[in-house]
Design a binder for these strands. Structure first.
Lengths: 409, 409
DNA sequence: CTCTCTTTGTATCGCTCCCAAACAAAGCGG
DNA sequence: CCGCTTTGTTTGGGAGCGATACAAAGAGAG
């Protein structure tokens, strides 16, 4: 038994993590605001900011700012643009993408790629990590973590991809383990020097929600629900109090099998008229009387059709209305269960919102139990490469939780 | 360093709350376990325990225990049976109940009552609080808080009962405000002496979940889902990391309107075949071919019928199977969205589980997406007066969060 | 331009919390 | 009786942080 916790020589400032998160999410633009947000004295906030600057994570700018407000202008806080980064990787139906992402969700470098040997997860991940490692060499940045976005539910704590979508992968691939091994083989060291880099992996829609919560349309929300489509199917994610809610085994928010049309088409889940099959790009293309074509690129085609033909083609408009009605039904059901204070929509759903927000609100209001789901703000996702940024957020999390420990100094 | 030693015994302010919660929930039976659970040194745990004992909340017993294990026996920790209490009140269709509840969920005194003037919430609550005040006088206990359980969704932060069930109350009654006023009028002072007592109020099923999580069938669960019936309708609640998840406006877990039978009866929500109308006592009595009778007492009659006639009457058995199948469908849907690590069932649902658990598991497994909802443990509620105890938990929460502040010393 | 007001940054002091270490106590087994 | 193990207790000291006083940097008034 070891009741002795942690070590003593490491002076761990308690407020260091929360302070970094405030700067990271842009909620503490100045030291004065940081002081107020942390609820500490100016002296303490100053020490914390100085510490974070010494760690190379943020910059404290005491230069004048032409603020215009009264009193002495506060020092400006910002993420250090030349600071460390994390490696973010994304695998999807059309290919992959690697990126280096700094604090604040800033993409420092990124590069896409096409899948050559789709069927082998290890080889695909090795390719992505290889590109990331090259970016690291080219930029010479210090890398503090690594995160991976996959189009599949990821079971915790094993880190296995249960249902890879649009990828010829078998179910149950241990993506986190493979990702971590690839990092080691690419020669990317861990932040502490000697220990190897451990990779994080999660479902892409979860990461979209996380990224949008920190840097996009979900900023400031306390209970954020995210619903989005890829090419096929519908996914969901929930951010509670700033943390991803993945459930007890990582499989929460499988929202695709809510019933939105009792007489709808049958679904592989055994039900009928599920959100999954009634509001995805395939359903839209079919409802509009278009040839759906191959699965890959279906989202793109649906988006193009909706945006270009909505005003002109009655069939497209009718299809959009049909899907909007079903989506509203599903969202109302989710509001009854989750009671979020904001909803963000991605993929085709985001586009449906942009095309006719009023219709969606009307359906939700009609179906809401206490007249509230009609009042929940619904927004479209606002961030580019959001699941990639989300993968970076995953990798940043240990640093945000305890900067001193994560930096190994 | 100057020897300014032994100034005040005001120690352990940080870990005081967590320590009290550990003793309260029975997870720290000895000081040694407390030390390990808190992750502090023996010295700190000792100081914390002594502080809590000095506050009169727990007792530290250094007497031998005939443990049989090696080493010096640890001091035993337990809730102080003569310590302070909270006032718990419950209003339901058949009447009301007041109680004094100590730490550990121990009911010190309780007394039921019948509603005389149902239609006036203020008068009903005044009656309940009156009984509670009498119990307080009779026992002479110090009262640290007050909690109320109502059969209605309670909107936050207003504290209004939106849909009182089986009570002739209008929707939107500000129950928390009225409750607090009744406490003041009954002459019950706040814990700090001068400030008045503020009441807490919540939905009964939420409180069932809370009570069962702390002291009943939900102990040790991290993500606990509770589903239960009263006389009519179905309610749900979720406890995440030991805290009730009520959503952003207190209205989460309205699980009654999941579709479990696409061709089922129509529901007031506008849908068809909702869990609410397909698995409640009325649905059961009708399915069994019985005359449902008046709404009040419907749960009792359904329970009696199920328990006494299940083995003998094929119609009852068929009805039970029908409801079990529908319930399994609903639970599978909830597992897909919430991914709990345990489910507890109350009311008729608990009885259905006791009668045929295997059938329920089979349905859930068949409808589970990743073969996991079949593996989620499903238990029946195990606590008597659980919503009353839950109301007490609500009242204890400030004390558990910060004992020093809550006791006003 | 200078004086005052307001707001913020900085230096110092002292207090509180809590760890670490050493020691004492209480049971078990020889 | 003495070791062994586990736990409670005492003591010293260090780190974090609040409180306070003072300095700095702008805005506005005259």
């Amino acid at each position: 038994m070891t009741p002795t916790r942690a070590t003593k020589p490491e002076r761990g400032r308690g407020a260091l993590g929360p302070a970094l998160e405030l700067v990271h999410t842009g909620r503490a633009p100045t030291r004065a605001v940081l002081t107020a947000e942390l609820g500490v004295t100016r002296a303490t906030a100053g020490a914390v900011a100085a510490e974070l600057e010494a760690l190379g994570l943020i910059t404290v700018d005491s230069r004048p700012t032409a603020a215009g407000s009264q009193g002495r202008p506060s020092h400006r806080l910002s993420v250090n643009p030349d600071g460390p980064v994390v490696l973010a990787a994304q695998v999807h139906a059309d290919g992959f993408r690697a990126a280096l992402v700094g604090l604040g969700g800033r993409i420092v470098a990124t590069e896409p790629g096409r899948l050559t040997v789709e069927a082998d997860p290890a080889q695909v991940l090795a390719e992505v990590v290889g590109v990331g490692a090259r970016l690291l060499r080219e930029t010479g940045r210090r890398c503090l973590g690594a995160g991976l976005s996959v189009p599949s539910a990821v079971a915790e704590p094993e880190g296995t991809a249960l249902n890879p979508l649009h990828l010829p992968w078998p179910p149950g691939v241990p993506v986190r383990e493979i990702f971590t091994r690839c990092l080691a083989e690419a020669g990317i060291p861990g932040p502490s020097g000697d220990a190897p880099m451990v990779g994080h992996a999660a479902n892409d829609i979860n990461l979209v929600a996380l990224a949008e919560h920190r840097h996009g349309a979900g900023r400031g929300a306390r209970d954020l629900l995210c619903v989005a489509t890829a090419h096929r199917g519908v996914g969901g994610a929930l951010v509670l109090d700033g943390r991803l809610h993945t459930g007890s085994s990582g499989l929460a928010l499988e929202v695709g099998h809510l019933t939105v049309d009792p007489n709808g088409r049958s679904c592989h889940c055994g039900g009928r008229g599920c959100l999954d099959v009634e509001t995805d790009p395939l359903a839209f293309l079919e409802a509009a009387g278009r040839e759906p074509g191959p699965e890959t690129g279906m989202l793109r085609r649906a988006l193009d059709l909706l945006r270009t033909e909505y005003a002109a083609d009655p069939a497209v408009r009718d299809a959009a209305h049909l899907l909007t009605d079903r989506l509203g039904l599903g969202l109302a059901g989710l509001v009854n269960i989750l009671d979020p204070d904001r909803i963000i929509l991605g993929g085709l759903h985001g586009a449906l919102l942009e095309v006719d927000a009023e219709r969606l609100h009307a359906v939700m209001e009609e179906r809401s139990l206490w007249g509230r789901s009609g009042t929940v703000p619904v927004l479209a996702c606002a961030l580019e490469h959001n699941s990639l940024v989300g993968a970076a957020e995953l990798a940043w999390q240990p640093v945000l939780d305890d900067p001193m420990a994560a930096l190994g100094s």
